[in-house]
Design a protein around this nucleic acid. Sequence first.
DNA 1: GCGACAG
DNA 2: ATCTTGTCGC
Length: 221
Amino acid sequence: MRSIEHSWNVSPEEAEALQIKLAPKVRIEPIKGAVRSIAGVDCAYSDDDGTIICAAVLLEAESLKVIATACAEKDCGFPYIPGLLSFREAPAAIEAVSKLPEKADILMCEGHGISHPRGFGLACHVGLWLEIPTIGIAKNRLCGDCLPPDKHRGSRSKLICNGRIAGTVLRTQTGVKPIFVSAGHRITLKEAVHWALHCSCEARMPQPIRLAHQEASKHCK
DNA sequence: GCGACAG
DNA sequence: ATCTTGTCGC
């Protein structure tokens, strides 16, 4: 239950070691309690490259109506390295989510959860740090094998990493490229897929992620 | 050595 | 991530 606080000022080697150390702390389990709100968080980068702008948006779970928005701006303290994305975006994401007026029952992060080389993607890191249920929503595959799901909305296929089902390739809109859904922390894959689909009635990406993306981009210009 | 590689 | 409107395809 205790927070996993650690320094973000680490080398790529130390970052990998931290992932291996923290991965066992991730809990894949059913959500406790009712889901009344869902938040989404995403980052954007300023033109002059050097600062990262992150936005968090809190929505009412059923209606998907916006309850609140929050932003955070930080200097990029880590380069983009596949597999180490959280060391670049998590600090800003955590700050933005922390600024929301109330705690979300579920948080959706732009990136992978346990469908990661070391089972510790951005969604796991943020979820573990804040100790809240998180879902990883990625536009592309990072690791593992999968087959393309059928063309209609709701179709899905397994994403297998190291012989384990680590995620779901989910078609959120008929005829549109599927997204990669995975559990981040304190949620099951089945629940993650359910909420991802529930939030994707109007577009490929779930509404919390879409709105956070728009908000972050807006604060960049 | 050659590909693959979240944002 | 980001450069970027209209346009080609189903």
